[in-house]
Design a protein around this nucleic acid. Structure first.
Lengths: 244, 244
DNA sequence: CGTTATTTTGATAAGTGTCAACTAGCGTGG
DNA sequence: CCACGCTAGTTGACACTTATCAAAATAACG
């Protein structure tokens, strides 16, 4: 048996079968777990698929699980006090969802595409975190990262005009789906009205800005939801994302 | 010795002198510490005052301390990539500032009024957190709370018009400074241009909306920065904050 | 192939930004 | 002490952006 290249320990054979071929074992949340931890958590993890539009987490229900998204896109929505539903974020493959200290789930996570994910029992992972500062740190850091992102997004929404908002959203989605590409095609996980909801502008304005970006050659659009970024550089410029 | 009820029991005499009269010992961060922990942390804490406009934390410097704000208001600003300075938040008495996992400080905290605070050595508190899940949880929870607030603010900024933004800012400041009041006078910790910066609108628009709120009798203004909320209910309505 | 929902486009109204003038407050130096 | 200039704030006129209302075009679907 040749395990010499393994960056994990000699026990690699002990990795649960379903994890062995999972890319998240190499890059995602699970890459931060030792084989022992993985094994211990394994009975409390179930791998699942869900069709587009089904709910992965539901606001208001008891907060009993974390979700590790393996494939697809999930949109987070919150029912705000005045009764309207607000889109508060998007999550992609590799992202981890869940709130450590909330009694009830604070937002709904709805599959925007067909998705695959691992459902992790919250008590089980919490117990692990209380025994391993490394895991506790990791979970703490997720929140910190999320806070940074949300802060950035907040500034974006407060300061930018409609064009920058729309361009910025396309840019962010494309960065998550194929980071390095200069030109890429993506299937938008949001309808026009959802985009408007998310960005705080109307459907009509979203549509007009998309048409404008198309007219200017930064993107092209087939079948409404299928968008090709023709010029990533100019798109980033339109989004007013200077560095990065 | 009974440690479970120990928070305010027999050992209370061992509480460091300067903490004994501090309101935060009862309500703030320190109320979550046992007497032993408080004692252990004490040599790594220094109580300080700072004049308005001085910096309490400086973006880019090494991240070596937490700050527990005891009195006054602090404004958080971030230097964004394009060189502009953005106000990203306000912090009030009782709030805790600091980032657990950042190597450098991510934002500048500038005193908006004269302030009093305790500077806590980061290594010392981090060490304590790694030994006590209770403290680690507490620190984790701060970030989670901050994330919730930021998310709410993000929606506010994305969806609300200028009037709602300005009314909402006044409302939030008044809630932090005197929660239960129906009518209260507050000294704005921000200039008009800072308010505009924070809310993503121009100085002129801020000024116009303030004038309008004054004309409509929701507030009155003396000496520019001294604002009296005349009708908290209508102000909340103008901010479009239905419940709460 | 018609029916329905979504998206796009157009015309107009409302809101905000921009530019400019004016006012109030305040410290400085004559 | 007053005049002066400086800064922050307010107000007005106008331009530009976005929302709103309405209608047409396109896609989705039985």
């Amino acid at each position: 048996m040749n395990m010499s290249a393994a960056r994990h320990s000699v026990d690699e054979a002990a990795v649960p079968a379903r994890c062995r071929t999972c890319t998240s074992r190499q890059h995602g949340f699970c890459s931060d777990l030792t084989v022992g931890e993985l094994h211990r958590l394994s009975p409390h993890v179930s791998r699942r698929r869900a069709d587009a539009a089904s709910q992965v987490l539901s606001q208001g229900l008891a907060n009993t699980s974390y979700v590790h998204l393996l494939d697809g896109v999930v949109k987070l929505t919150a029912l705000v006090r005045d009764g309207t539903e607000q889109i508060v974020g998007l999550r992609f493959a590799g992202d981890f969802l869940g709130q450590r200290f909330a009694r009830d789930v604070g937002f709904t996570a709805a599959a925007a595409t067909d998705v695959e994910y691992c459902r992790v029992s919250k008590p089980a992972l919490d117990a692990l975190a209380d025994q391993s500062t490394r895991i506790a740190h990791r979970m703490h850091r997720w929140v910190a990262t999320e806070l940074d992102e949300t802060r950035g997004l907040m500034l974006a929404l407060a300061q930018r005009d409609a064009r920058q908002k729309v361009a910025g959203l396309l840019y962010r989605i494309s960065q998550r789906q194929s980071p390095a590409a200069l030109r890429t095609t993506l299937d938008l996980p949001l309808s026009r009205s959802e985009m408007g909801n998310y960005l705080g502008i109307t459907v009509e304005t979203v549509s007009r800005q998309l048409s404008r970006l198309k007219r200017e050659g930064l993107i092209s659009i087939e079948r409404k939801t299928l968008v090709t970024i023709e010029d990533m550089g100019r798109l980033a410029a339109a989004a007013n994302i200077s560095g990065q």
